[in-house]
Each structure stands twice: as structure tokens, then as C-alpha cells.
Amino acid sequence: MTKTTHTINRAASRELMKDFSLEMTGKDVPSLLEARPLIPLGTRINVTFLGNEDLEMRVAAAKSVREMGFVPVPHISARRLESEQRFREFLSRLQDVDAAQHIFAVGGDPAQPEGPYSDSLSLIHSGILQEFGVREVGIGGYPEGHPDIRKDVLWRALEDKSAALRDQGLDTVILTQFAFDTEPVAEWIGEVRARGINAPIRVGTPGPAGIKRLLGFARRFGVGANAMIVKKYGFSLTNLVGEAGPDNFVNDLAAVLADQPARKGPGLRGQVGLHFYTFGGLAETAGWARRFTGRQE
């Protein structure tokens, strides 16, 4: 792991923070209402597809996002769909509340599919998305790998999904899993572009969170609680009290990306932004984003 810390490039940090997106669960509508004054109108807000939430909760959350002036991006978990009928019902309900134009297709957690869809590519290949007005599909990216999936399999999946969406005339956004180190992220973005995939990329970034919780999520997703995480997020493993914010990570990533053209050729970065995993703290994350952006002026 690199230990390099780049000089802060405030203009690059401001640029990277433009049009960031947020994530919420179906249960987070009260939190979204609280955070509403802090979130720029038109912000994309992803609504997760969790096993302990039902259709009504997911649709109600997507509807609330739209009614508050934001852009809903509902998740669809392939392996959690019991049938094609359930898939169609969910999309139909989303269309009814004007929340079906942007979706995020993900395989999902269950080891065995609960219905006919084994992965997000099967959702794309179904041809059903377009029937309900879907125009853009988000797909997953893994800059720091996946604990259960080989790297070559991840690359093949990204290429196959990108090609399938292009062939179907659907726009693509790549949304990455949590990232904790900037150099692997920059290298991964370079590899994505080298493979001819030019879709916008949103780098998954943990919002401000309790340090113990942050490290717990890092371990869950196969990222070790090592010195790199400590340095990027500015805390000590000997003192796990308090919160850690992504200031260092965002500034460092912005500087690395701003330096990319000089290092590896023009146009490598392309469209890159941030997606914040909020851990239920929508107001905390939105407030942090406003303060952070203000400090870059």
C-alpha cells in the first residue's frame, strides 16, 4: 500500500464534490426529511433493496426522494426477486411514482437466488427494464476487489454489463463499493478507461461515522483495518472513540485524479464523482459535505 499523501488541490476537491450522490434505506425517510435543507436539489439518492424491507417501504422511500426534489435511484437486488412478476411489479410501482428512470442493478447478498435472476446481468438481459421507462442503469465496481470474487471475474462482469447496456441503448453509471485507499482507486479507474469503458464513475466513500462502525464495515467488505485506513481517515487504532470523516480521503483522491493526465495521458479520469454511504446518517453526511465544500473556497 502506498503511504503517499498528496498536496491538497482545493479546486480539484471542489470539482470532485460536485453532484455527489447519497445512499439511504427504505427506513430512512424521517432522516431524509431532517437532512433535506442541507442537500442540494437534484442530488441523486440511492434507495437500497434490503431483505428486511418490503415493496411498500422501498416504493414509499423512492417517492419521498422525488417529492423532496431529489433524484431517486432505487436498487434492484437480482437474487432477492422471487419471480419475473415481482420484478415487473416493483418496476411498475416505481414508474407510478416517477422513480423508475434511474435504477441500480446489483446481484444481492443471498448465496442462492430466490427466483430466476442470478445476477445483475440477468436483469439487464431480461429486456424488462425498458418497458417501465428505465433510461439509466447503475452497475457495481470494485476498485479494491471483492472478498469472494476473483479479480478476473469482476472485470469480465463489468465489461459484459457495460456492453449489454450500450447495446440496449441504456445509459450506464458505475458505482463502486467502499474505497479506503486512493492509489488503487486511481489505478482501477485507469484500467476501466483502458478497457474502453467511458461511463461516469461514482467512487463509494463512507460518510462521517463512528470509528468502530467504520472499521466494522471495512472488515465486512474485506478491507483490513490497517495503517492505510487510519492515515486516510485521520484516527488512531489506539483510540477508537469519536467519529472519522472522509476529508483526507476526498482531498487525496482529488489530488491523485487531478494529476492523472500528467502521469498517464489525457482523458484518463473522465467523469468521476463521489457516492456517500451514509450509515443512516444522512444529515451528518450532508452537513459534512456542505462544510467540506465551504472549506475549499
Rank of each mutant, 00 (worst) to 15 (best):
P261N: 04
L257M: 15
A62K: 02
H102C: 12
I45A: 07
V250D: 05
I45D: 06
S83G: 09
I174C: 08
V106P: 07
A164M: 06
N52F: 15
V73W: 01
G140V: 15
G224W: 05
T278W: 14
I128A: 00
P143I: 04
A62R: 02
T7D: 07
Y142E: 05
A164E: 10
M1V: 10
P40R: 06
V192D: 03
D247Q: 15
E82T: 11
D171G: 14
G42L: 06
R66V: 11
M1E: 08
T182R: 09
V153W: 05
T172R: 06
G210Q: 14
E243K: 15
G280F: 10
S162P: 09
F249E: 12
Q85K: 11
F70W: 06
F249M: 15
R193A: 01
V272Y: 03
E284M: 13
R93P: 02
T285P: 09
G141P: 05
D259Q: 13
R213L: 15
R58K: 10
R202K: 13
V65P: 12
I8F: 04
G51H: 13
S122W: 02
K18I: 09
G69A: 10
G273A: 11
A35P: 08
P208R: 02
S64W: 00
V73F: 01
S120E: 07
R135V: 07
G204R: 12
T293N: 08
A258I: 03
F217M: 12
F70D: 08
K212N: 04
L129V: 10
G107I: 04
P208S: 03
F292M: 14
V256N: 11
M24Q: 00
G190E: 05
L91C: 00
A12W: 00
I76D: 00
L81W: 00
G133W: 11
L268S: 11
G140S: 15
I149L: 04
G69T: 10
A78S: 02
I229G: 08
G245Y: 01
D181M: 13
F178C: 02
G69S: 10
R220D: 13
G196C: 14
V185T: 13
R220F: 14
E131A: 09
A209C: 10
P40V: 06
T176V: 10
G138N: 08
I103L: 06
R195W: 15
S126M: 06
G69D: 08
P143K: 09
V223Y: 11
G287W: 05
V106Y: 02
A262R: 09
N239W: 10
E284I: 15
L214K: 04
Y233S: 07
P116R: 03
E183L: 07
F87V: 15
V97N: 03
V29T: 14
G222I: 13
S126I: 11
R269P: 01
D148F: 14
L129H: 04
V173R: 12
A227G: 06
Q112G: 01
A12H: 00
S162L: 02
T238W: 11
F276L: 13
W155E: 08
A255D: 14
H146K: 10
I201N: 07
G69N: 08
R44T: 15
V97M: 05
L154H: 07
D96P: 01
F20H: 12
V185L: 09
S126Q: 00
P37R: 07
S21Q: 07
N46E: 07
P261Q: 04
